[in-house]
Write a protein that binds this DNA or RNA. Structure first.
Lengths: 354, 354
DNA sequence: CCAGAAACTGGAAACGTTTCCAGAACAGAA
DNA sequence: TTCTGTTCTGGAAACGTTTCCAGTTTCTGG
């Protein structure tokens, strides 16, 4: 915390040239070599570094992009953040992280606050959406890119999580599971609604070969909520026989489901196959590792960052709707029983095993 | 993305008063009620919101704080970020996330770049530290708070991870473990070095009751590295008998260790007790849940945020060194064998199990 | 050697805000 | 009524930068 910083004016005086020339020299545009040298050394001697605020005021660019999510702790958002950062940083953009909380109201406030001009663009992934939010985004004074849901006339990067859920169901059926439970999150959220649609569509199709399906709803998308919901679900075994598979709307919920299964002495995947969604790190390292529908979090983050980057450039084109295809990643939690599993360490009680 | 934003000047014209009065009216300082009303309505009609860049230029405050870490993906840093955000946001501060990468050089660059004045303060948690970095921090034009290591004359929030490691070792000895391995991360990192010191001190104390100790070093603090290191460690059983406990320098490493144990058919905690460090969410939900030394990530984040907040205020005091005490959280991965475990089927090889 | 073009330079304005300063209006007291 | 003190208001400067514009110098070709 030393003496206050040198200004361009001081560099100019030290170099004995005008302010304008100093600025040009430092940018290398239209200045003689002699001028550049003089100014460079003067700047170096003073330890000058340009003030981004002054520059922003003049250029009307902040070189900052905001990333707003409901909950920074969610691994999905962390992956997005990492990807966004990777794309933006090389272009000289800083990333401002904002938290919207779970309600739509604060998200609207946040979008409105863009009027104060602290960022050149916003990437937002709203958990819930309403008309006010859509309207606020349309009116926003800077480019806004929405992750998670495709919206009319708004730049967005979405994924078909309904289809993704279909993939999970199809996979379970394929490995012979017939009584499939679904642990979803809150229905009034964008992902919750989409995934419910996906499950309903997949299990009501005429080609669906299952015997029984049932949905239980968790209070939010966390392990604890998943555990509670799974307890409820598994407690009421359907008449046709116990559940042999559970689809979870989320990796965290899936982990809750596996814990609940453990409490009941059920072995995963032997007695109960479990699928998650989001393909997070935590699911990858969990034991058993989690079969999960990847929604391309990193890809979505990258795409959104690229989109906002295009927009803050001059490119003015109709709003783009980018879609990232979901794909299933099969791991241990739905693997057919291997030798290791049968002989294996999970020292849990031997159960009927269907 | 509507027409360009209204300025204070335009509000002033609309209200038919001077610029100065307009500013005062909006801040509620020294303006008549009539004036306030007029200006307020004019502002509302124009949908005015103040430009933070103009304000920053004049006030020499950006109302932004940077948080810089090596890797945003690490759950520890995510917890800190959340806590920092919680403290700062209510005071009107935005959080800019920066990534330093693993090398010390880029961290130095980052600290130097504070000269461009885009934030009022910095919270940094460097993985590695050298003289250049310390010097850069001392010279920094804005307050810098270091998380992770106590440094002379620099504000810092640290924790005694060496002592924390001692707690883990003590706990293992207490539950009867005698042959204790240590899976550490790179020694040239701040946490790696501290934890090695802690392990060495704890296991070489005259009161230490163990039979054998050994260290294996992972390439970094990840699950994959932990798995590889644990394989190496467990492959070379000491002469006095197989390891019955492993201390990991980190929850992620600990999970790697547990996976390695699984590969060898060892049951955790019966055959091998495992402890982690950092007390992360992932460790809490893992199966078995992880005994871990909490280093108070959230607390450290909060304390650092509070400290930087004090500093950007006028408070000029000698640098503060805040220490957060580590504490052990015992969970399943070191639990004494419970009925369920003992009564369980001899699915895995019966091992010494003392 | 000169005209014109090209390259370079400096003055000044502009970006949007806060705040110092001085002046004006107004109130209360003598 | 006049004086003093308080409250309110407007002009203007300042924060640090980029860039337009016009003026000056240097180069090039005839």
């Amino acid at each position: 915390m030393s003496s206050s910083r040198a200004t361009l004016m001081q560099v100019a005086e030290r170099a004995g040239v005008s302010l304008a020339s100093t600025s040009r020299a430092l940018h290398g545009t239209g200045a003689s070599q002699a001028m550049v040298d003089r100014v460079r050394t003067a700047a170096a001697e003073l330890g000058y570094s340009p003030d981004v605020i002054g520059r922003s005021l003049r250029m009307k660019r902040t070189f900052q992009i905001a990333f707003a999510v409901a909950d920074i702790g969610n691994p999905v958002y962390v992956e997005m953040l990492t990807a966004i950062h990777e794309v933006l940083a090389p272009h000289g953009y800083r990333v401002v992280v904002m938290s919207t909380g779970p309600t739509v109201g604060t998200t609207v406030d946040l979008v409105r606050s863009l009027g104060s001009g602290f960022v050149d663009g916003l990437i937002v992934s709203p958990l819930r959406t309403d008309d006010a939010l859509v309207e606020a985004i349309r009116q926003a004074p800077v480019p806004v890119v929405v992750i998670g849901r495709s919206l009319e006339n708004i730049d967005s990067v979405s994924t078909d999580s309904a289809a993704g859920l279909g993939q999970a169901v199809a996979h379970l059926v394929e490995i012979g599971r017939r009584r499939i439970g679904f642990v979803n999150g809150p229905l009034d959220t964008t992902p919750g609604a989409a995934r419910q649609r996906g499950f309903d569509a997949a299990t009501s199709a005429t080609t669906f070969a299952g015997d029984h399906t049932e949905t239980e709803r968790a209070d939010d998308f966390t392990v604890a909520a998943g555990l509670a919901a799974a307890r409820r679900l598994l407690a009421r075994d359907p008449e046709v026989g116990p559940f042999d598979a559970v689809v979870a709307a989320n990796d965290l919920l899936a982990i809750g489901v596996i814990r609940a299964a453990g409490e009941l002495g059920l072995s995963v995947p032997r007695d109960l196959a479990v699928t998650g969604m989001d393909d997070t790190e935590i699911g990858r390292v969990f034991q058993p590792s989690l079969t999960s529908v990847s929604l391309g979090s990193a890809d979505r983050g990258r795409a959104a960052a690229q989109l906002v980057l295009d927009r803050v450039g001059d490119v003015v084109e109709p709003a783009q709707q980018i879609a990232i295809g979901p794909h299933l990643v099969v791991r241990e939690s739905t693997a057919p029983p291997r030798a290791a599993d049968v002989a294996g360490p999970p020292a849990s009680k031997e159960k009927s095993a269907r």
